[in-house]
Design a protein around this nucleic acid. Structure first.
Ligand SMILES: [Mn+2]
Ligand SMILES: [Mn+2]
Ligand SMILES: [Zn+2]
Ligand SMILES: [Zn+2]
Lengths: 135, 135
DNA sequence: CGCTAGTTGCGAAATATTCGCAAGTAGCAG
DNA sequence: CTGCTACTTGCGAATATTTCGCAACTAGCG
């Protein structure tokens, strides 16, 4: 069953733009659609921003990428294979720190037990004050 | 010291628009700027949307209202006196449930202990699947 | 009463994201 | 290898959301 290309395996057509968008997301770690477009333009200058938006959506639909909300505005995308982690966003200095998902294990369990809610702790960032700004 | 009006107490001028925006936020519970504007227009038809945005910002600066991110897009505002609670947003059906902040007490403590991070658990919603959609 | 700084309404600008459509192309069938 | 068709792309325009500049207005103080 292991076919020739991960995009084809997901039932997607293999276009240069689509491959470039996926690579860009992987290389950037976290990126906004605009940043992904910029990255792709390094090798494919003509790519249109709407093509980036459309491909991010398509890639998300088949589970190759995911989006997260780190700030008050738009979303950022990351590859799915990156083992998910929490984002600790500081409201004062704007820094974004990471933390392993298991610091939330107990919390997630509480929500499951009390509300039957299956939590995806990394979709939204965790907001607050970083250690530096607490002082 | 207890002066004559809560807005004046905060050092703000008392304008009809400002009072109406604050009342609207209180009556609506959670509301987008657009919804606040709509509510205010019931009694003050001419209010401009930018006046609503500016007043929400002003009211937030003095701590009378706060904003939260419930969805992928813009912010919603609520009065500060509402004892804060978590928002459980379902990614499938879009429902927004509430939960008392103390279900997160342990999680908040972990982040404080491990990262010195002072968490505001209610600024961003908690995303996942509601009990109904888990099935 | 007047003055002055803070506010408002309004139109325009800045952002961010989505859409319609015609031209281009990936992949399958023959 | 060739042709067909559905899927994609580029592009410009449309939406949607939030912010600004500015002149007119007014709350609050003296
Ligand atoms: Mn915010
Ligand atoms: Mn989202
Ligand atoms: Zn900080
Ligand atoms: Zn649901």
């Amino acid at each position: 069953m292991a076919e020739q290309h991960e995009l084809r395996d997901k039932g997607l057509r293999l276009t240069p733009q689509r491959e470039l968008v996926l690579s860009a997301v992987r290389e950037l770690g976290h990126a906004t659609p605009e940043e992904v477009a910029e990255k792709v333009r390094a090798t494919h200058p003509g790519i249109n921003l709407s093509t980036v938006y459309r491909n991010l959506e398509t890639l998300e639909n088949v589970g190759l990428v995911q989006h997260t909300h780190l700030g008050h505005g738009g979303a950022t995308y990351h590859a799915s294979e990156v083992l998910t982690h929490l984002h600790l966003v500081c409201g004062t200095c704007g820094s974004v720190g990471d933390a392993p998902i298991d610091v939330a294990a107990n919390f997630v369990q509480n929500l499951a037990d009390d509300y039957g809610f299956k939590t995806d702790v990394s979709h939204f960032a965790i907001y607050g004050l970083c250690a530096a700004c607490v002082k």
